[in-house]
Amino acid sequence: MSAGTVLLVEQSLNGLQFGIMLFLMAAGLTLVFGVMNVVNLAHGSLYMVGAYLCASVFAASGSFLLGVSTGIAGATLVGILFEVTVFRRIYDGDHLDHVLATFGLTLICNEVVRMIWGPTALFAAVPQGLAGQVQLMPGLSYPAYRLAIIVVGLMVAGLLYVLVNRTRLGMVIRASASNRTMAAALGVNDVVLYTIVFGLGAALAGLSGLMAAPVFAVTPGMGDNVLILSFVVVVIGGIGSVRGAFLAALLIGFVDTFGRAFLRPLLASLFAGNVADNAAPAMASLLIYALMAVVLFFRPQGLFPPRTR
C-alpha cells in the first residue's frame, strides 16, 4: 500500500467525518426552516450546549453514556425553551426579526456558558473504549473515535430519512413544510408540531456538538463557525431539503478537508520558494466559499431544492 493511497484514504475519512457533523447541524437548520420558515442563528448555541454538557458530565461521572444522554437532553430542552419563549412570538415576523432575535439568543448563550465554565477551553476526553486506533488496512490506522462519529452519523442520517419519509410524524412534517396553513386546517396541531421539530433540530445539533467536543476545542462561541459552515451547506443543498443537506454536507466536508490537506503540497510542486506556505492556507480557507459562489451562480436555488415547494 503506497503512502499516497494511505493519505488519500485517511483524508477521505476525515472529510466524511467532518461532513457528517456538518450534516447533523444542517439537517436541524433546514428542517426548522422548511417547516417554520425561521432562520435560527442560535442553532450554534445548541451545538455548544451539547458539547459542554457532555464533556463536563462525562468528566464528573466517568460515564460517557450519561454524558451523551445529558448532552442531547440538555440541548433539546434548551431548544424547546427557545421555541416556547422566543420563536413562537416571531414566527409571523420577517426574516430580519428572526436574525436579530436569534443573534441576541446567541450572545446570551455564549455569555452564560462563559459564566458557568469560564472563558478558557474545556478539556473533552475521548471515552476509553474508543481511545485507540483501528488498523483499517496495512499502513493505515485511524482513530476509533472518529470512526465512531462516522458510524453514528450515518445511522442518525438513516433514522432521520426513515422518520421524515416513512412515519406519520414525518408525513405531518412534510405536509407542514409544503403548506402549513392547509396542514393546520386539516387538523395538524401546528403548535405542538413546531415544538417537536425544533426539539428534533436541537437534539441533532447537541449530538453534533458533543461528538465534535473531543476533536475540536470546547470554547464559548464554538458553535458559531460550525453554524456558518452549516449555512453554506444548507444554501448549497437547497433550503428545506434534508437530502440536499446530506449531499452538500459531504461535499463541503471533502472539499474543505482536501483543500487543507493537499493544496500546500500541490502549490509547492508547482511554484518555487515559499509561495505555497503563504498562499495555501488562504486559498484553503476560501475554497468552500468559492464553491458556494459557483453553485449559486449556476443554481441560485441550491443543488437539490425540495420538490414540495
Binding site: I90, L100, A101, G104, L107, I108, E111
Partner: peptide, 14 residues
C-alpha cells in the same frame, strides 16, 4: 456585557 446586549436585542425584536 454581551449577554445584556443580547437581552436588550430580544426585547427590541419582541
Amino acid at each position: 456585557w454581551p449577554a445584556v446586549l443580547g437581552a436588550i436585542l430580544l426585547l427590541i425584536v419582541l
